[in-house]
């Protein structure tokens, strides 16, 4: 039973990381119906830039710097890879472009930081807290709190500020948003910036728990994509539930079967969702009006 709770706690922490990255997928999908398939690499760059910056500034001051870096990196992805594809209404151009940019970022990172995984110094004690035999790393708690705070912050921005409302309006109806005087191209760039910021933030949250390295983002980006599909690309609640579900299923599989199979149940879940509820567990099926 202790092991069960242990797996639950660890699964929840990694699940929240998936949720934050999946949340990033949702941000760009909402405004432009496109996704940044380089989300994993945005996370990795956040982790590595964070590692370098924190060696000068320490962890906490590094956070806003890495988030600013994420904003910039996401804008670059949109301007170079996505904008043209949207303009010519290309169905697939942005897919290749964002994957290509992801590979370029991966190469760049390998050349700057090397191919080996690096230890990211933890800002909190690495002594686990023990509750009735269940060990929780303080960093795991920070992961969950940080992830939730980030999503709440974006949600509050969208609901309360005029620019956030402009983002929602663009997601609702891009042409009509243009008629309100909203520069919807800029809003789409902004949603990419925000999406990469979320990924970079996730990168520096997870790095002290795992390790940092050029390839740290690939698997995370892919799994978060699965989470976005499982939860629904339009549901904020969906990515949290989907992320926790996938995270916990993985650790449980590792515990009760074998760590070698830990990726399998999540992917089976993904296939099941795609077969029986393609809009995601929490997604509303979109009815196209003609």
């Amino acid at each position: 039973m202790q092991n069960f709770f242990q797996a639950l706690v660890s699964g929840a922490a990694v699940g929240m990381i998936y949720a934050v990255i999946a949340f990033g997928y949702q941000l760009t999908f909402a405004t432009s119906k496109t996704l940044n398939f380089g989300q994993g690499e945005a996370l990795m760059l956040g982790g590595l830039v964070g590692l370098t910056v924190s060696s000068y500034t320490g962890y906490w001051i590094m956070l806003p710097i890495v988030m600013a870096f994420g904003l910039l990196q996401g804008s670059v992805v949109e301007l170079l890879g996505v904008r043209q594809a949207i303009k010519i209404k290309s169905e697939a151009g942005w897919i290749m472009a964002t994957i290509a940019l992801g590979i370029i970022f991966l190469n760049l990172a390998e050349n700057i930081w090397g191919r080996d995984d690096l230890k990211f110094p933890s800002p909190l004690s690495e002594q686990p807290l023990s509750f009735k035999g269940v060990n929780i790393l303080p960093m795991e708690v920070l992961v969950v709190i940080g992830a939730v705070l980030l999503m709440i912050a974006v949600e509050v921005f969208n609901r309360k500020s005029i620019y956030g409302k402009a983002v929602v309006a663009t997601s609702n109806d891009r042409d009509a948003a243009g008629l309100m005087g909203i520069n919807t191209s800029a809003i789409i760039t902004f949603s990419y910036a925000l999406s990469s910021m979320a990924a970079a933030f996730a990168g520096v949250l997870v790095a002290p728990v795992t390790l940092t390295g050029a390839t740290m983002g690939s698997a995370l980006g892919l799994k978060a994509f699965a989470v976005a599909i499982i939860g629904g690309l339009s549901s904020g609640m969906g990515v949290i539930v989907g992320g926790l579900l996938l995270g916990v299923i993985e650790t449980m599989t590792g515990l009760y079967f074998s760590t070698g199979y830990k990726d399998v149940p999540g992917l089976i879940l993904l296939l099941l969702v795609l077969s029986f509820k393609p809009s995601g567990l929490f997604g509303k099926s979109t009815i196209k009006k003609v």
């Binding site: 005029i162 620019y163 409302k165 402009a166 309006a169 948003a177 309100m180 005087g181 909203i182």
Partner: peptide, 9 residues
């Protein structure tokens, strides 16, 4: 409010 976006920005 969004109708007044240009006025608010």
């Amino acid at each position: 409010v969004l109708g007044a976006f240009p006025r608010l920005t």
